[in-house]
Write a protein that binds this DNA or RNA. Structure first.
Lengths: 130, 130
DNA sequence: GCTTGCCTTGACGCCAGCGGCAAGGTTTAG
DNA sequence: CTAAACCTTGCCGCTGGCGTCAAGGCAAGC
């Protein structure tokens, strides 16, 4: 399998695959003419990477999962390192949810106050002219 | 008030103030020697900018609030444009909260499965060696 | 006069995950 | 023979909000 086919099958670009390789995440043999030749297993690897990036992981966070797949596991998240990353990421997400919830509250009260102020200042104006 | 003093009083850097000015958010007179001279009112403006950026606004989002302050309002959020931005931002935050909540769920189940798998595969290992 | 501490503009660096272009080699079909 | 469709390496661009020099001018105390 050449890089174009892998890219299409994984739903990404050749540029991205070369980028992953440059960062040590995806491996490829080389054919006589220098073309990258991929094993079928790399497709799973690339999909794992993509799935994790979509969830907000960084490339470094993904490494243990890739290594886990390469170690022969059917799923990339069953190895200790992966689990550790999962825990850390879950904590990060929880922390961010908290912060974002607080921000939401602030925005909400600020919006409420602003509208109330407009009511006081200029009562004849309708709230939603629509 | 010179730029250094304003920076310190606003809890930011001179670089930041020049940046804001370059982007049309903060105004300054110039003294004979070319130094920026700030009005007292600019302190409130800078603090408003900082507060909004901390909440996740971009510089463009901040503009209406600054204009609102300049228009003589005691608070930057009572003008229609500001209210509109507040509404939009609130919607964005809500959307992001939803996504992040879904991500959290996925991470949680993935983590649960991974740990369960390790239990099945290697029951003698303790979960948290501590 | 010299140092110290302000201030000025200008320009590059940073982070992350690529996109996109340049300039070229290879293989296959017509 | 040539065009088309692959592939290669390399390098700049992008987004945002600044940090961090660099090189120099101005003010004030000793």
């Amino acid at each position: 399998m050449l890089i174009g086919e892998l890219a299409e099958r994984a739903g990404t670009s050749t540029r991205t695959l070369r980028y992953y390789e440059a960062h040590g995440l995806v491996h490829a043999e080389r054919s006589a003419n220098g073309y990258r030749v991929y094993d079928e297993a790399e497709l799973r690897v690339v999909r794992e990477i993509r799935a994790l990036l979509d969830v907000g992981f960084g490339l470094d966070d993904v490494r243990p999962f890739v290594a886990c797949l390469r170690a022969g596991n059917t799923s990339g998240d069953v190895c200790p390192d992966s689990v550790q990353v999962l825990r850390r990421k879950l904590a990060e997400v929880d922390a961010y949810l908290d912060r974002l919830g607080a921000v939401r509250e602030q925005l909400h009260t600020q919006l409420t106050h602003a509208i109330a102020h407009r009511e006081r200042t200029c009562p004849k104006r309708r709230q939603l002219p629509r």
